[in-house]
Design a protein around this nucleic acid. Structure first.
Lengths: 192, 192
DNA sequence: GGGGTTACGTGATGTACATCACATTCGGTT
DNA sequence: AACCGAATGTGATGTACATCACGTAACCCC
């Protein structure tokens, strides 16, 4: 599906925009094509944009002591990603974002988003709802991390996103779950 | 400080409302006085409202197998709390909220919030920013939970909210950090 | 298509934390 | 002041997971 059409349908789920309004909104987005392994944000970067994923899969991750990696988010089509702390506070990036597969994305700068939110009430509504869903998902993951062991978390993840099993290497799934790759390899959940 | 004044100042930080607009907004809030130990939301309840804390301290927590408790949030003055997953999805509550101390709160129903967001663009802006800050804080906590040991998390919590040390019992702090009360008691961070 | 990097599996061992058990202290109630 | 339950400290022991070490299989890629 075309980037434009995908974004339009995605927004239409929570906000009603006229064709003209969407045209205006879409004019602020910059499309980009990315190769597997390509970096979008590195720690220490100035962060200007957030990204809407059209195709492919990105990962947003944190690196501790240049040794351990923790994945905050796998970003798949229709998902948004960025270093939001850096983007909203105007601070330097503390996380990295790169491509797990080839990907197409749409970039929206922080200032353009704010301009759009001011200009079009429905757009502000859309972004409130989007953040809201992210917040709720994040709270849920927090609880799961405190309450469940590695095996349960793995099963939950695969139940919710079965496509991850074949799409991303296991050591990245381990980094998302917060366990070592060796531990993940020993779980044996009955999947193949 | 009066509830009304506190809410007004709180909102003014991110949205400009005329006195008249704020008057309209405030008319949708219902004040409540609560006693220490009093329950606001129990697991299984229908959730209609979110709550703005005027004074006192609440806790939002999850109970696993009727044994273990995990605290999602300590809600202090000018903080908002509810079971947002239940509130937004119209599902039954999966968490509990009660009072750690006597407290005053302002209640806003889900439908009234949506009504206000539609009627007043600046109010929608305010709620977008509020959720945004919550999302960023939640991501930060997720990283801290994966990346830091119990002692480091305890020190971070006390650095950010020193008042918690004397305000809430240690076993609740342990439940927030995701460790047992015994482990917390053995940390010895140099605090008093 | 051989060579090197990356992914994955699995044993041995170490460690942070949970759990159980019990003692002690604190805070509120009559 | 005396009491009782809640909160806290601390030892002994168990366990989930990390870490280290090594082997093998899969995937690029000149």
């Amino acid at each position: 599906m075309q980037a434009r059409e995908l974004l339009q349908q995605h927004i239409a789920k929570t906000a009603s925009l006229t064709e003209e309004q969407f045209e205006y909104l879409f004019s602020f987005f910059t499309p980009m094509s990315l190769k597997k392994g390509q970096t979008i944000i590195s720690e220490g970067d100035k962060v200007d944009c957030e990204y809407f994923v059209v195709s492919g899969c990105l990962k947003a991750f944190f690196i501790n002591d240049e040794i351990k990696m923790y994945i905050l988010q796998f970003a798949m089509p229709t998902w948004w990603t960025s270093d939001y702390a850096a983007l909203y506070n105007g601070t330097k990036a503390t996380i990295h974002i790169d491509c797990i597969t080839d990907a197409e994305i749409l970039c929206l700068s922080n200032s353009d988003r704010e301009k759009l939110c001011s200009a079009l009430h429905p757009v502000e509504h859309f972004f409130r709802w989007r953040t809201n869903r992210g917040y709720i998902a994040s709270q849920k993951r927090l609880l799961s991390l405190m309450n469940n062991d590695a095996k349960k978390r793995y099963e939950e993840l695969l139940a919710q996103y079965p496509q991850l099993y074949n799409l991303v290497p296991k050591h990245l799934i381990a980094a998302y779950l917060g366990v070592s790759r060796e531990t993940l390899s020993r779980l044996h959940t009955g999947q193949h």
